[in-house]
Design a binder for these strands. Structure first.
Lengths: 228, 228
DNA sequence: TCAAAAAGGAGAGCACTGCTCTTGACGCGG
DNA sequence: CCGCGTCAAGAGCAGTGCTCTCCTTTTTGA
């Protein structure tokens, strides 16, 4: 393969630096980051940025995809570090990793899971990395089913829910019982809600020991799911 | 009492109309509503708005408080309409009312429970109306405890969590067991997560029958809490 | 009753934003 | 080595929040 031309290499470096500077701005200014400010920080003129990102939304999209991947990596590697047979430990590690990442990158988390930016529609590139944390969680349930250490909850689901979840299960983990998937999704929803509440300051005044609270609440969901 | 002067009456009407127009803009443009656009819609000049709201953030705050109250009213009245002895029905009604309101007012919901607007810090006036839905939910648990139809889950909470929740319970419903409060807050967190996922489009492609899904998932939390 | 004071609207202006267009300078492949 | 494509720079447009000044209208107090 041919060595990349100088132009191509410089261009890649520029893109990387723009994203780095933008990420820094994101941390302080939140979602309303300004192209002009980024350009100023790089000693460039604002119009030059448009050579690399056709619009502000495209820059945001790039940052969003990177953030999804960073979060996915954090969750997956934390979960992978736990003994495969320790299902509850894997669950807790994955949840905690998501929270730790969110607390370390609050602005990026807000970009991913906060209210959608008004004029902005997330392109399809984002749905795959966006589902990685959820897949990690559901993977724990699948492993537990496979070796019989999780018994799926009995009781029927209402039909439309059963059908929807059956279709979903067929797509990701064929054979996963719908009732178990429902509880896994409840856990995932809970995780998201917990992190959002904490990050958006909604339990600032009510729960001082947020670390212990988080662990306990995710443990509660592990109980609901039936993790041993 | 003296009749309000013409000025005062006109002023009140102006404030109301500004908020109404702003609410309309909110629905289409989301959180980045523009004072100038609101002024244009009213046939005013932008600087005139500042006679009524000293800054854009103050307008947003007014809208936020109104939205919190609207949501609180919706939840409370829906919950109050159910037979007092039907604890699960009250829970489901409250959850459903919150979801219905959110679906009917997505932009306002995003303002309340989405990512915080970057430069904006919610003033203290907002914390009381913000907690009304949560209090409604916890009130169901208190009633269930009072007449013995809910038995608090046994098992110890880790100490810092127990202490935090004991302090919280002492503030709102003295006598409510900490372990039950923990589950109630899990339900509240779940409710918020469910609505946010649905509203922010995170289960668009995965769960077509969102209505039934919502009901089932809130029912799951009712099970966890132990609602009869 | 009548002038002073307060309140509100209109307009200009400042600094900022995203984005477009044009003008040059530079690297690179034929 | 020359022309094509890439890129930085600057001017400019329409929009933003917000301030300040000017002017009219309403309220108020002696």
């Amino acid at each position: 393969m041919p060595a990349p031309s100088i132009r191509a290499r410089v261009r890649a470096e520029m893109i990387a630096e723009i994203k780095a500077v933008a990420r820094r701005h994101l941390a302080s200014d939140g979602a309303n980051l300004s192209l002009r400010a980024v350009a100023r920080d790089m000693g460039m003129v604002s119009s030059a940025i448009y050579r690399y990102f056709p619009s502000r939304d495209d820059l945001l999209t790039a940052l969003i995809i990177e953030a999804y991947d960073a979060l996915g990596d954090a969750v997956e590697s934390a979960e992978a570090a736990v003994d495969r047979r320790d299902l509850r430990g894997r669950w807790q590690a994955a949840c905690r990793a998501a929270r730790d990442w969110a607390l370390a990158h609050p602005a990026e988390y807000a970009l991913l899971y906060g209210s959608p930016v008004p004029g902005y529609a997330a392109p399809d590139d984002t749905v795959a990395p966006a589902s990685r944390p959820a897949l990690t969680l559901v993977g724990i349930l699948r492993d537990g089913m496979a070796d019989g250490r999780i018994t799926p909850p009995d009781g029927q689901l209402p039909e439309p829910v059963r059908a929807d979840l059956a279709a979903l299960a067929a797509e990701i983990f064929p054979g996963l019982p719908e009732s178990l998937l429902a509880r896994g999704m409840a856990g995932w929803t809970q995780l998201f809600g917990l992190i959002s509440f904490e990050l958006f300051g909604r339990l600032n005044r009510t729960v001082p020991h947020r670390d212990a609270y988080f662990t306990h609440q995710t443990g509660l969901m592990a109980d609901l799911i039936g993790l041993p």
